[in-house]
Nucleic acid binder design. Structure first.
Lengths: 175, 175
DNA sequence: GGCGAAATGTTAGAGACTAACATTTTCGCT
DNA sequence: AGCGAAAATGTTAGTCTCTAACATTTCGCC
């Protein structure tokens, strides 16, 4: 990560990383399947799925996902640490890495869909709800990384989820 | 594309593609920046931005994007042709290519954001609305490609956009 | 100390992509 | 037709990520 930040992601070769770590290139690839993988490691998925599943089944799918995600972000104890912040910024400034976020989101999406369909929601509806919420959330995350405005990340995530919901709809109604 | 479908994306080398096309490998890369680029070529973006900009500015951002996209899909004359269908299926069956969709979506997202902020919507709100709608739409597209249920693509896109809107919310309310 | 297993290393190679430079093809113009 | 400039294509050599096969070292445990 230090090398990436110093000289950029593309400009850093695996050989350099390996040398800095005092191991051979081969060893690097035994710990990280790809060079990209160094930057991606989120273990939050299961919490999210549980919280989505716990929402009132009477609500529309979109709303259940939204509230589940809101709960998940509020359950993250304190502010995001600097290392994470750096990672997100690195990703946001790199087109291919940004796209790579979606390889992670896909796993989250699948779990959410599973949680929803398990309680009677249709497959398509579940996919759309999960995709939309994750899409809005990711957009907010990337915006936060590239145009810092002092807002805390968790607060930003809340704002985003609100904007996708009823309150976001009514907020602008009488402008 | 024929080669990709026959033997898979990863299993097809650009040397093979070049040979099949009767050109050198170098020439291939002069026409396509990457091997992935063969699969990605959507020129629909400008239409979308225009239609989003044309929505009633009194509506919330999320709604304007939703309706704009709905209009865009309805303006695509007739059903998607087989070649496109094949491309989508190819992408949907390949993790890295699926993530690659978002390199395209990002461009679309930027245009939508531009259209919205140009009419007074806040930056974050615009990003979230665009990200959410594109997220839901893409999820529906990928689901359509991997689990065919006879529904036409355009119809599927309409369904998806409805689910993200007011109607999607009320539809399930009295179940 | 010694044995088996896990971790690490070496070497060779495939495949995507780039850069520099040479060659051919195309095309407007006389 | 024929000339010359510009565009398209080719050749070669190289970098970098990632893989496979196999050798070597290190470590925990008896």
């Amino acid at each position: 990560m230090a090398l990436f930040v110093q000289q950029g992601f593309d400009e850093t070769t695996v050989a350099q990383i390996a040398e800095a770590a005092g191991v051979s290139q081969m060893t690097f690839f035994r710990y990280f399947p790809t060079k990209d993988a160094v930057v991606f490691d989120d273990p939050y998925d299961p919490v999210i799925a549980d919280l989505v599943a716990a929402q009132d089944p009477g609500l529309p799918a979109m709303e259940r996902v939204r509230l589940g995600l809101l709960g998940a972000w509020n359950s993250v104890p304190d502010a995001v640490d600097d290392a994470t912040r750096e990672k997100i910024r690195l990703i946001a400034g790199h087109t291919r890495l940004t796209a790579g976020i979606w390889e992670n989101n896909r796993r989250t999406e699948d779990l959410i869909v599973e949680a929803l369909t398990g309680t009677g929601v249709g497959r398509v509806e579940a996919r759309v709800a999960a995709g939309a919420c994750l899409g809005g959330l990711t957009a907010a995350l990337l915006d936060w990384a590239s145009e810092p405005d002092g807002q805390e990340l968790r607060e930003r995530m809340s704002t985003a989820l609100d904007l996708m919901g009823e309150s976001g709809r009514t907020a602008r109604r009488n402008r």
